[in-house]
Design a protein around this nucleic acid. Structure first.
Lengths: 347, 347
DNA sequence: CTGTTAGCGCTTTCAA
DNA sequence: TTGAAAGCGCTAACAG
């Protein structure tokens, strides 16, 4: 059997009806007699008919495909995000069309353009690093609903969704404070991202709430990577009175911090409380002793999808900026004993 | 600006030319005067024209989108596979259309049907567990080139591609033999998959080549998971003369094996040689001491993409069954010392 | 080099 | 209920 060429007209002929009757059957219309429907369906099965959705969309001037543009599928966080989006779209009978940009803004531009050309009903994008608001211009100008996930872009006419970084950081640090820690560091990340600033803000909130001073020298800015985590601990431990607990920008940083702590003979979780945002998501399986602020990428993806669907259905692209709840997952003592010891000496 | 409705005819009017001239410009034809082209392009920019690829494909009866159906994006191995495919397709100016099935054959069926309806030029599928040859019938019947990746399906008319399991296992075991091991186990996996059988075959090859007996009691069948790895080591160590080296079905098994070895006071890599296929890909970052048989999912994806492109371009779906090379990545001593010790006692 | 004319496969009035 | 005819946005001859 060569490339399938069977069209509605073929099956109309085979079933002895007209094109439009076939079309009605295809759309599950109730205006068609049961017996006719059966005949038509039989003909479709026999001829191996495959629906040409492109032609249909052309005529209907609408599509059910929604684009998802993801910055790095290789990173499990974003893979999970994609899966979450996918799940919702699937149940809503939309067809997700996923593209990976590999953190390349140029590629991202191509991909978005391509999706536009293919006619999407909406777009969810987890932007590549360095994405400018104007990179989304083409989409918003064409009136297609857009939601930007995870990495908030400040721009009009698009909805954004991301983890509630501030609350998460606040909870984490409050937990450490509750354990008796009085000096708590913030490790890793650079100050140029919204994520970083929000997380540090939450950190500051919690210190303030606990009546603790905000000491700038305890906020160590390094790469948000394993190496950055190691380096941060190194810098921290050179200080005169190093703390015994830290909130890490993400789990990569937390890994690195744990490495560096062990090198110094400090067991993470016992001698030093480590909490990390679980951006890279592997934390739980890899370092079972690590307490994390769980962002829940799948749930985030689901919310993003719902947000987009709402806009598509309402027709009105009302902009929303949603924060999804994060969860503190406590898995070790966070250096409670060490906190007591150290603080005991100080008082 | 509402939903974009600008068509070729609009821009033709605006540029003072005819539809077809616009069409030629769109296709980058050299038959059109430079000045005209410029006028047309200016009009397109001004009116915010977006190309309707659906309409074009309808007319041309061909598309540049290729479908990639992936069983589990959450698993980095497959995410990397997808990225590899994506890279090639991208450079070949095909538009990859990725869908995740989450190991669900029903969903897989829907997704494939949907892709067919949207008109794809070719399909790469990494099948969900339990996929039957007949699940691919719709695609192959419509004459679209298909390549099945990683999990070989025995069926006519489709190409398959997968890692060279047998050679990989052979190399790994030969390496252990070269180190002095004379009793080597095979841990994890169930006998019902091609991957398992091929890997065990390679294991047997290497033993034979080294003049070593194939001892069935050293092939421990457990779940291909971390738990399975632990369990396998447990079973192994209950034997009268437990070996000091093993090839693990995958890296999850290898992790579990390492866990269980440590519990018994054996340091993996020192007291016991562990080699694992790196299916789950995290091995290298997580257990730096683990020697792996590296399957290279990205490279695998690239080869798969090339295979598909070849078929698309040739028009003739000539079936090929490709094995991609694997690489033994040695990162520790593999218990060489232990091997000497143990074997010394035995001789 | 540019314009005219069909028509891709489908949906949709509008009649019958 | 079903059929006939028009047309979605584009490309492909074929003339000019």
């Amino acid at each position: 059997m060569g490339r399938n060429k069977t069209t509605v007209i073929d099956i109309a002929r085979a079933a002895g009806v007209s094109k439009s009757t076939v079309s009605l059957v295809l759309q599950g219309s109730s205006l068609v007699q049961e017996s006719t429907r059966a005949k038509v369906q039989a003909a479709m099965a026999e001829l191996g008919y495959v629906y040409n959705r492109g032609a249909a969309n052309l005529r209907k001037a609408q599509s059910t495909v929604i684009g998802m543009v993801i910055n790095d599928l290789t990173n499990s966080f974003f893979a999970e995000l994609a899966v979450g989006i996918d799940r919702i779209m699937q149940t809503a009978n939309f067809v997700p069309f996923l593209a990976n940009t590999g953190e390349n803004t140029e590629r991202q531009g191509q991909v978005i353009a391509s999706m536009l050309e293919h006619g999407i009903a909406g777009l969810i994008v987890s932007p590549a690093r360095g994405t400018e608001p104007r990179d989304l211009r083409p989409v918003i100008d064409s009136g297609i609903p857009v939601v930007v996930a995870v990495r908030g872009l400040t721009m009009p006419r698009v909805s954004t969704i991301g983890p509630d970084n501030r609350v998460g950081a606040r909870q984490a640090v409050a937990h450490l404070v509750g354990l008796g820690h009085r000096r708590i560091a913030f490790l890793g990340g650079y100050g140029d991202t919204a994520n970083f600033n929000e997380r540090v803000a939450g950190y500051a909130d919690a210190l303030k709430a606990g009546g603790l001073p905000l000491d700038d020298s305890l906020v160590i800015r390094t790469a948000p990577s394993r190496e950055g985590g190691s380096e941060a601990v190194k810098l921290l431990m050179n200080q005169p009175e190093p703390p015994r607990a830290a909130l890490c920008f993400n789990d990569a940083v937390a890994f690195g911090a744990c490495d560096a702590l062990r090198v110094r003979g400090l067991e993470p979780g016992v001698d030093f409380g480590v909490v990390g945002f679980d951006d890279v998501i592997e934390a739980r399986s890899v370092v079972p002793a690590l307490t994390t602020v769980s962002v829940g990428p799948q749930a985030l993806g689901e919310r993003a999808a719902q947000l987009l669907l709402k806009q598509i259905n309402s027709g009105q692209p009302e902009v929303e900026n949603v924060r999804t709840p994060v969860r503190l997952v406590v898995r070790e003592s966070c250096g409670a004993a060490a906190a007591g010891r150290v603080e005991g000496q100080r008082i």
